[in-house]
Amino acid sequence: MKNSLMRAMLFTAILAFPAAAFAEEVPAGKRQAIQDMLKAMQCEVDPANIEADGDGFELDDVFCADGQYDMDLNADLTIAEKRKE
Score class of each variant (00 low, 15 high):
E44K: 02
I79V: 15
A21E: 03
L59T: 09
F57P: 03
Q32K: 12
M1C: 09
E44S: 03
A8L: 09
P18I: 00
A65C: 13
S4M: 13
I34R: 01
E58A: 14
R31Y: 01
A13I: 08
L77S: 11
L73W: 03
A13M: 08
L73G: 07
A16S: 10
F17K: 00
I14S: 07
L59D: 07
A52G: 15
A19S: 02
A33Y: 00
K82F: 10
M1A: 12
F57K: 02
N74V: 09
K84Y: 08
M71G: 10
I50N: 12
G67S: 11
E25F: 06
P47F: 06
Q35N: 03
V45A: 12
D70M: 14
D36L: 03
A21W: 05
F11M: 04
P27K: 04
Q68D: 14
E25S: 12
A52W: 07
F22S: 13
L77V: 05
A21R: 00
M41Y: 03
N49S: 09
D66Y: 04
L73I: 09
K2S: 11
E81I: 06
L5C: 02
C64Y: 08
A65Q: 15
N49Y: 05
E25V: 13
C64A: 09
K82H: 09
D70N: 15
Y69P: 12
E44A: 06
K2R: 10
G67E: 11
E85F: 14
E25C: 04
M1W: 06
M9I: 08
V26N: 04
N49T: 00
A13R: 01
K2C: 01
D53F: 15
Q68H: 12
A21H: 02
E58V: 07
A20G: 14
G56M: 01
C64W: 05
D61R: 05
A20P: 02
D36S: 09
C43D: 07
G67W: 10
D76V: 10
D70I: 11
Y69T: 12
L73M: 07
A13C: 08
L77W: 10
L5Q: 05
Q35W: 00
R31P: 06
D66T: 07
D46M: 04
I14V: 12
L77K: 09
Y69F: 15
I34G: 02
N74Y: 15
G56P: 02
V45Y: 04
D60Q: 08
G29A: 13
N3P: 14
A52S: 15
A16V: 01
I34Y: 01
A8Y: 05
F22A: 13
I34F: 03
A80T: 12
A16T: 06
I79M: 11
D76W: 11
I50V: 15
K2T: 08
M37K: 04
Q68L: 07
D70K: 14
L73Q: 10
N49W: 02
R31A: 15
K2E: 14
Q32T: 11
A65P: 05
K84I: 13
L73V: 07
A20E: 14
F57T: 06
E25I: 12
G54R: 04
V26W: 02
A75E: 15
A33F: 00
A75W: 05
I79Y: 11
P27L: 03
T78F: 09
